[in-house]
Design a protein around this nucleic acid. Sequence first.
DNA 1: TTGTAAGCGTTATCAA
DNA 2: TTGATAACGCTTACAA
Lengths: 355, 355
Amino acid sequence: MSTQTPKRSASPAPLQPTARATIADVARQAGVSKATVSRFLNHREKLLTPDIATRVEVAIAALAYSPSPMAQALKRGRSRLIGLVVADVTNPFSVAVLRGAEKACQEAGYLLMLFNLGNDSRCEAKAIEALTAYQVEGLILNTLGQDAGTAAEAARHGKPVVLVDRRHQNMQADFVSLDNAGAVRLGAQHLVQAGYRELLFISEPIREVSSRMERAAAFRSFVSDASADVAGHTFESPADDSEGLDQALRSLRQRAGGRLPGVLSSNAVVTLRVVAAMARLGWRLGSDLGLVGFDDTEWSPYVGPGLSTIAQPTDELGRIAAGCLIERLKGLNLPPRQILLSGKLVPRGSSSPDR
Amino acid sequence: MSTQTPKRSASPAPLQPTARATIADVARQAGVSKATVSRFLNHREKLLTPDIATRVEVAIAALAYSPSPMAQALKRGRSRLIGLVVADVTNPFSVAVLRGAEKACQEAGYLLMLFNLGNDSRCEAKAIEALTAYQVEGLILNTLGQDAGTAAEAARHGKPVVLVDRRHQNMQADFVSLDNAGAVRLGAQHLVQAGYRELLFISEPIREVSSRMERAAAFRSFVSDASADVAGHTFESPADDSEGLDQALRSLRQRAGGRLPGVLSSNAVVTLRVVAAMARLGWRLGSDLGLVGFDDTEWSPYVGPGLSTIAQPTDELGRIAAGCLIERLKGLNLPPRQILLSGKLVPRGSSSPDR
DNA sequence: TTGTAAGCGTTATCAA
DNA sequence: TTGATAACGCTTACAA
């Protein structure tokens, strides 16, 4: 009847570990050619005799057939896969982005292939490599962005890329991020208005990471624009140097003299370090030192007198990032966009001097 | 020379968006057949004339060729892909498992396809469906486990499955989890030894979730085995009912009379709820109420007087889960295993009456 | 030891 | 409108 050789018996109710039905199975069951089944699937209503259409439909239902995305990918070059590279799944920010992105992808019918760098930027190239090998149609990158060549690599493969939170030098790609400058101003302004005058911006070691650089720069420019009685410095705090942090805080308080010292911390991890230092020093948040930190977390309200934070629209960031990518996949062809979302100040006890 | 038609010109240094080199490209470049290249890749040293081998090797390097996993999957039926279904990426426990699993997979050369349920158990079947469609070789499931049929579905596809933290009824699969009974005992015992006598176990609504049931049962049996002056109840706290939680805590204290009341909370989310309630009630952790919570987090030390916790070896759990799966994929054929890891008590101020 | 050719599950281009 | 057939990039009998 057809040259296509039967491979599996078309037993109706398979009980044991059974392979998925293929398009050939469906074709046989419906008494048509594979091409017809494929047409039914892809071009639906066009070019199909009602009779044949229903026969195919029935066969598909009977065999619980669904096409193999692998085979489709091989043939069409489109895999319905999106690669997500995350600097560190442990970082709540990354997770939030992940969540938003995953949701958007799911809704658009894409599946996510995940690669976690574990903060090891040397994996960056490997990650992109592995992901593109699997024919992902595009990449969402939340990486250190240090290895300039790697993302370019992806672009060279002609795949759309969207960068989240961290820019890559010379990268032609959509970029989705918090409005760092605005957010820093929001936090610093709040500290000043609350009465803190001697400020310190504490960041993880900046190391060319774009978001860290932007925040530090914004802080400096805030200080230089502020009224004369406001002073400010910046400090980079490595993970393993609590001694250095303590020292920095002591100096801060010394510089402050009679005025109130305030800290702006660049993310939740640093915030926690500052909180730990406060405990070591025996100081109290709010009265001895004002604190506003980037990233609002579910535990922020319950640490000390409540931590004042700058909340990032993390979910939004992830969703928009995925959205940008999906638009590109649908054929949108614009020059690289830059989408900046505003942070929101959440004032709590840690920036209230009279507690 | 061969019947295989040339497709791309073998230009040495492609600059524009360029397709990956294929095995045919390599074959042509090396002047051998595709089969030879394939053999070089898969059987390495065997059956290969040194001369030819180096020619192939050079060609591969020159073209930066790496085989398409998609095509390999199609041919071999092995995709080097592992599916991970997570109940809720927002849950720190899930994230930790994710992290451990991802690492183990990476090391074993597998890539992770992620599906997040967002706590919607109705997606469970869809998730497994989508993942198996992509020929994942196995599944790691950290789901609600309510939908009995879904995992069985996977098993029917003949794919190995490992369950993390939550069992499924009637599921023949490896199971990796905290030793809930032991962990509950650890926490409850600690409360009792610290002097708390009237105990309350607070859980999210249990709803047939196996880990919640096990913890509640273990708590009850601890209480009934304990000395006569120790009493205990359990309470299920839904997300939106802070009033009910406050009431439960007031009742607890009432029951306690002159004795000290203590709470054992079933995870970090609940712990945070209890902390919030304490703030509302104006009670102090430790002195007014003892608290030990499941899940040690990076913020546990800094909430109130420090939260006493039962730390789960989350990384370990994820790694072992992935490990189990990979063993199965390598052909291990044992009856379903059950791997229980011990929790570790981390005592802090919240379970110290004299603070 | 190497090459030829078939086939994995699709889709697309032809004829019919 | 439908069907045969040739790819997609790879692996693997089977021939040579």
